[in-house]
Design a protein around this nucleic acid. Structure first.
Length: 479
RNA sequence: CGGGGCGUAGCACAGCUUGGUAGUGCGCUCGGUUUGGGACCGAGAGGUCGGAGGUUCGAAUCCUCUCGCCCCGACCA
């Protein structure tokens, strides 16, 4: 009998992804085109990511607030580049209360405009700055083609919006979020290594001066933009008249930023770590870190096994997120598979043999099969599990990093580039224009993911234009 | 919006060509036996066959219209 009904990655990566989402009960289709129901297991993962992000957002001086779902259409129209970028994706509300509205509302695709209009009222003096606000919200962008978590018409995210007195301060904020919040959470909590850098003009946020991003590599060698941080310059400040009076009584426009990560991170989590048996979760974002499966035949055995379970789990309450699976109509084998598919990092099996020997069976999700299963003493089990959870967290990051290194290429010529770009990231000297990027994209489906922060000292030759340049870019196909 | 496909039980599908009692597997309910890698036996519940119209003695099946969904391509956190 087949172990799972999950399509192997090698056969069809895209179907594998959909199968994982379904089998692990993370999300399902809804009655609304392009919108998913996030099921409890998927949502619990989101809550853990959210908690880690929220903690760091607050530690870095920001506060949470909430702005409306609906935005007057005229607001969206104010920033020219912004309108052009978002107009095709915006849903509008034209009727309410049984009547045609005098001015339509748009359902927010992002909140720069309504927050800009608000900040114009909040900010009068240099003493009011900086304004450091974040909101957790849903947004809607009408997408032609959707995939659970990776791209849905409605998605959940956080969007930070800050206003500053100087360009330098806004730039510092933009980079601080990228490094200290986004990279920290994605690498340390989600165990996904990221590349950091600047987006090209082609790839930046509509209305931004500059966009910085973290990019993660998926197991099929494609890139996933995992978070973006924008220095908006004075673009929105001018459109919305976000102005302040300086200490020497001059009126100046503010410098604003915005930055966000979304439920797409759950897609990254799946595609970075999971295998053909199901979801694999880093312990820090696992809703259940340890599952205990008791095994017994008679009521008498049950009593003995459960007594041992109570004993070994007595001090777990504040240590682990754990669950006892005592459902007695299901076989142990069924339960093993079910919790594996759902990505639970550690499984403890305990039956009569263990009761007799004072042991348990301990299985690691990141090491499938017999290899990941060992028999350990009940004494000291709590500490042992704590250590194993840390090992798994580290092992997943190391594995993902190794994978990325193995799929990181360099290319000197366009021909060479073409042979490599389908397999991973390609780092090249590049001084091409936006038109060149478009051409490369239509030829190869690859785009500049980032102009990495770690640029070389030495000059090289652009792989596309053959001109000398010091600028390097990382190209990849992306989600 | 173009190209392709599909709507039959909670899910996956067969039945349609050639009209005649609506089926199979999984799941679900009940009873019993089971339980160290997806247990088994028995009994049972569950359907306006996407919708509307038409042809016919009779339509899941044939015809017309309609609605919805999925996949592939053009947009994107």
């Amino acid at each position: 009998m087949a172990k799972t009904n999950i399509t192997p990655r090698e056969k069809d990566y895209s179907q594998w992804y959909l199968d994982i989402v379904d089998a692990a009960e993370m999300a399902e289709a809804s009655g609304v085109r392009g919108c998913m129901v996030i099921k409890p297991h998927g949502y619990a993962i989101w809550e853990l990511i959210q908690a880690a992000m929220d903690k760091r957002i607050k530690e870095t001086g920001h506060v949470n607030a909430y702005f409306p779902l609906l935005i007057p259409k005229s607001y969206l129209m104010k920033e020219a580049e912004h309108v052009e970028g978002f107009a095709p994706q915006v849903a509008e509300v034209t009727r309410a209360g049984g009547e045609e509205l005098a001015e339509p509302y748009v359902i927010r695709p992002t909140s720069e405009t309504i927050i800009g209009a608000t900040y114009a009222k909040w900010i009068k003096s240099w003493r009011d700055l900086p304004v450091l606000v974040n909101q957790w919200a849903n947004v809607m962008r009408w997408e032609m083609r959707t995939r659970p978590f990776l791209r849905t018409s409605e998605f959940l995210w956080q969007e930070g919006h800050t206003a500053h007195a100087t360009e330098e301060e806004a730039e510092r904020e933009t980079l601080m979020i990228l490094h200290d919040v986004y990279t920290d959470v994605v690498e340390r909590v989600m165990a996904i290594p990221v590349l950091r850098g600047l987006k090209t003009e082609n790839e930046k946020f509509a209305g931004a001066l500059r966009t910085y991003a973290i990019e993660a590599m998926m197991q099929d060698g494609k890139a996933l933009q995992a978070g973006t941080s924008h220095n908006l310059g004075q673009n929105f400040a001018r459109s919305f008249e976000i102005k302040y009076t300086t200490p020497d009584n001059r009126e100046e426009f503010c410098w604003t930023t915005s930055w966000g990560v979304s439920t797409r991170l759950i897609g990254a989590l799946i595609m970075a770590h999971s295998d053909d048996d199901g979801l694999v979760l880093p312990p820090q974002v696992a809703p259940i870190q340890v599952v205990v499966i008791p095994i017994f035949k008679s009521d008498e055995e049950r009593a003995q096994v459960m007594e041992a379970v109570d004993r070994i789990t007595a001090d777990w309450r504040d240590r682990f997120r754990w669950k006892l699976d005592a459902r007695d109509h299901l076989s142990p084998g069924f339960k093993f598979n079910e919790w594996e598919v759902k990505g639970v990092p550690v499984r403890v099996e305990i039956g009569m043999k263990d009761v007799a020997k004072g042991t348990v069976a301990l299985a690691r999700r990141d090491v499938p099969g017999r290899e990941g299963k060992s028999f350990v003493e009940q004494a000291g089990l709590t500490e042992r599990i704590a250590a194993v959870l840390e090992e798994i967290q580290k092992a997943l990051f190391d594995r993902a990093q190794r994978f990325r290194e193995e799929h990181m290429f360099e290319a000197d010529t366009y021909e060479d580039f073409k042979t490599k770009v389908g397999r991973g990231f390609v780092r090249v000297f590049f001084d091409g224009t936006g038109e060149d990027e478009d051409k490369i994209k239509s030829d190869t489906k690859a785009t500049v993911r980032v102009l990495p922060f770690d640029q070389p000292e030495a000059e090289g030759v652009c792989f596309y234009t053959n001109r000398k340049t010091k600028r390097q870019a990382i190209f990849a196909r992306s989600y």
